[in-house]
Design a protein around this nucleic acid. Structure first.
Lengths: 275, 275
DNA sequence: CGTTTGCTTGACAGCATTCAACGTTGGTGG
DNA sequence: CCACCAACGTTGAATGCTGTCAAGCAAACG
């Protein structure tokens, strides 16, 4: 039933309504060092043995290349739910690969409005915005207790000068983010509330499915307000649209537990949206 | 009056309503070869002597590095107004630097809607979306007769393995595109029509100013519909908003000729939007 | 167990869209 | 040179989707 590309450690057991892990707290008891006030896990977990390597930066690398990458990704960092991995304006030194947990990124305008620009899950990279000006251009906030691999950017550039495969994979990841952003523009610029939410749910389940989770049941890690911000809607509209989908038999909605009961119906609302 | 960072050849003379060049047709009479049905200019114009080098890929490179880049950017391509530089699905082989002219990029959903994702002017790069899947993920359409430098992507990766400065500059350009896209998301997700159009105009004039044009007078290269698509509005709304700005004394609008008469007033409408 | 935070729902208002008509511009060919 | 046509732009009136404001409920947290 689980079409696992790789086994996630400890998928939280027997819950029928969701097969997403709710915590991954087990590993965090490892010995931790500290560096500049942020907690860093001293234990090094090699990319070469990481179960996310088929979704993350190492895609397509050979074993020898992987061992070089291992020496680069020297530290992991734990970020508690609600805390920021980085803030707008922070000096940019590293990009981060989500190892466990869930993040949002958001940008803010001077007059206080803000916009969620993405949600990141295991294997996805954070911080690419910082290359442009050597300072981060958004906030990255953990939506649950999370762990990231710290990838010092200077060393990444260095290593990707040595290995064209790594270089190309890194470029692909940046390019994919651009393509994804354009898909979001299409969504924000031309879709109505129902279409936006349907596209959002299909995108989430597709990504979860690629990580071995159910394609039909999911637990939202974000609030209605955060969904609304991402989709350019108010939280009330998001809530109403969830209720509407439920009335129409497309979903079962219990707060953050969502079960898709008519995927074709959702798809019919969208017909598009890449990324 | 013209705060030129560099002199653009032949800024079209004495027009009071605009100091943007309307064509740059002069150079296109050069001898041209052909390659796969597309016109390629045989004349090689070196990056090292290009007046756009401070805005384009070569930013920050030394003379020796520049001469290497020169050997890479071997061809220029002419694209007539209305024609595509590339289409969605085309094989990705090169990125392109706009030399003269003006482009739009757009993505399309399966059900026919499309969204303009950006407008590109001299010195800006096109085609970065293609790295992700080896196929272009959008259409790039010339909004006026234009000329681009063809930068074979494989060779660019190669050369950027050799020169870290080039590598870093290329990464910066990709990152900047990501940051810009996030700014557009903020615009689409949280701003009202007036704010969107004000932000759009300020962004355009800022970029034109960086290229030596007036910060207050501009000629729009795109239709109301294209502006609307970019801003997530209908063309009627764009038109109405232009009229409203004119009534309020912020602009003088004569079809595509725009003169900003109260920049502070425009700025007050926005207070934000990067990119 | 109470407080806070998040979610749902209703009534109403407002901004942008839709539909429609008319005006303007630039190119083409008589 | 002028007429005509097509594409583009402007404006009005009415509709509708989403936002706003408000109230009540549910869940999470200490």
């Amino acid at each position: 039933m689980l079409n696992s590309i790789f086994p996630i450690t400890d998928v939280s057991g027997s819950s029928a309504s969701s097969n997403q892990p709710h915590g991954h707290h087990g590993e965090q008891a490892e010995s931790q060092g500290s560096c500049g006030g942020v907690k860093l896990d001293a234990f090094k977990v090699a990319c070469s043995s990481c179960n996310l390597r088929e979704l993350c930066l190492p895609v397509g690398l050979t074993q020898p290349q992987l061992s070089h990458l291992d020496s680069l990704v020297a530290a992991r960092r734990t970020v508690k739910r609600g805390d920021a991995l980085f803030h707008t304006g922070d000096a940019f030194r590293s990009v981060y690969a989500v190892r466990t947990g869930f993040f949002k990124t958001r940008v803010s305008s001077e007059d206080g409005r803000d916009q969620v620009t993405g949600f990141q899950m295991a294997g996805e990279l954070l911080g690419l915005d910082g290359i442009s000006t050597d300072r981060h251009a958004c906030d990255a906030i953990a939506l649950e207790d999370s762990q990231v691999c710290v990838i010092p950017y200077g060393q990444l550039e260095e290593l990707s000068r040595e290995f064209s495969d790594l270089q190309h994979q890194f470029h692909k990841i940046m390019s994919r983010e651009i393509v994804r952003d354009h898909g979001v523009m299409l969504l924000l610029g031309s879709m109505r509330a129902e279409e936006r939410l349907a596209a959002f749910l299909l995108n989430l389940t597709q990504r979860l499915h690629a990580r071995g989770f159910s394609a039909s049941a999911l637990v939202l890690r974000m609030t209605r307000e955060e969904i609304g911000s991402y989709l350019g809607l108010k939280l009330e509209t998001v809530s109403r649209t969830f209720s509407k989908f439920q009335d129409e038999g497309l979903l079962e909605v219990k707060q953050r537990d969502i079960r898709i009961t008519n995927e074709a119906g959702l798809r019919a609302l969208v017909n598009s949206v890449k990324g």
